[in-house]
Design a protein around this nucleic acid. Structure first.
Lengths: 199, 199
DNA sequence: ATTCTTACATACGCGGCGTATGTCAATAGG
DNA sequence: CCTATTGACATACGCCGCGTATGTAAGAAT
């Protein structure tokens, strides 16, 4: 019980640091964020950061893990709203693009993350939200809806497409209008994966 | 004539710095590359760098412009080998993916570039090799081969797909085998853009 | 021939990161 | 209940790297 109190405090410390880091990284980017500043904002010092995360990269990794988990939840929710598997996949993909429009996600997950930590598929948690896309796709292949392509390859392609499109949308003058165009083009592209109806 | 000599020297200086920067950025990444080191390797000092490029970011921009131009040439060459426009587009896209496998291009153009300078479409030269994809695509739409989607949106999606796939391939154990899978999946995806044959 | 400008080199200061060390509270053992 | 030990952080130090301000020599302008 007393032991639990201690563990609880540690978790709070970690949570505070991750929270502060998310804001700092999102606002200024990873490179421009000072560890002194963000720890101070959390009411702590760099000592806590090095103890808990081993360094600046470790903190970024922790932030990414947290955000990735959140994104996973949102993608699942989007998929489960749809009537069938294929439409679920579309909704899931669109949800991903919408999330990729959020500055925090874009900056941390899509720009700084890969640049600092390398390819997302090599991350410790294996990028859960990419895995979800892959598994959804594999299900569609198994049920015969989608051509028998390599699920991971296709998932990668679609994820990358969505990611890049989101970068573009975010920088556009009228994000919402551009978003509609992208969704339409994305649907066309994705339909290339469907088994041809005449087949 | 004497004036030309002077301009020539300046060009050589800039070329030397860009060359050294390309190697340094490719080897260690942008953040870990010391300007003192790379200028010294070029037989110069940071003074020359700040004078010619305004700073570290300016140098990165110059490096990217140069590489982008080179990529453009290679994409054109790939396209012109093909028999028809659609196949040309495929070859062009595959060429892009192959280039994206090269560590130098991957590190500088695809990882550090966007992270440091922001969205590629906002870069000064407007990312020439993306424009090429877009124009090729627009041609295919005009001739009726491709569905009337937004060319820029589709180009963005395909570029992003190729980019992300390349990141994955490069980190894979057997890059070549994975590359084949990706190309196959990419073809399927891209065919989603074709007008349906029954139409 | 002189002034002015260009194209760099040199010098300086500040901020940021990592590490080594210190401190205090909490657990464990007798 | 008292002490030894570990854990969770804070403090202190040094180095490196960037940007800027200043210096300098060679070419261009008049």
């Amino acid at each position: 019980m007393a032991a639990k109190r201690r563990a609880q405090m540690v978790e709070e410390t970690r949570a505070k640091l991750i929270q502060a880091a998310r804001r700092a990284f999102a606002a200024k980017g990873y490179a421009a964020s000072s560890m002194d500043d963000l720890t101070a904002e959390a009411g702590l010092t760099r000592g806590a950061l090095y103890h808990n995360f081993g360094g600046k990269k470790g903190l970024l990794q922790a932030v990414i893990d947290q955000m990735d988990a959140e994104m996973l939840v949102r993608m699942r929710a989007a998929r489960e709203k749809a009537d069938n598997a294929w439409l679920g996949f579309m909704e899931e993909s669109i949800a991903y693009m919408e999330m990729a429009l959020e500055p925090e996600i874009q900056r941390i997950m899509l720009l700084d993350g890969p640049a600092v930590l390398g390819d997302p598929s090599q991350w410790p948690n294996q990028n859960a939200c990419l895995r979800t896309t892959m598994e959804t796709l594999q299900g569609l292949i198994d049920e015969g809806t989608v051509r028998p392509v390599d699920a991971e390859a296709a998932a990668r392609l679609l994820n990358g497409a969505a990611l890049n499109a989101a970068l573009w949308i975010a920088a556009a003058d009228e994000p919402r209008a551009v978003f509609e165009k992208v969704v339409e083009a994305f649907r066309s592209l994705a339909e290339g994966l469907l088994r041809s109806e005449s087949g």
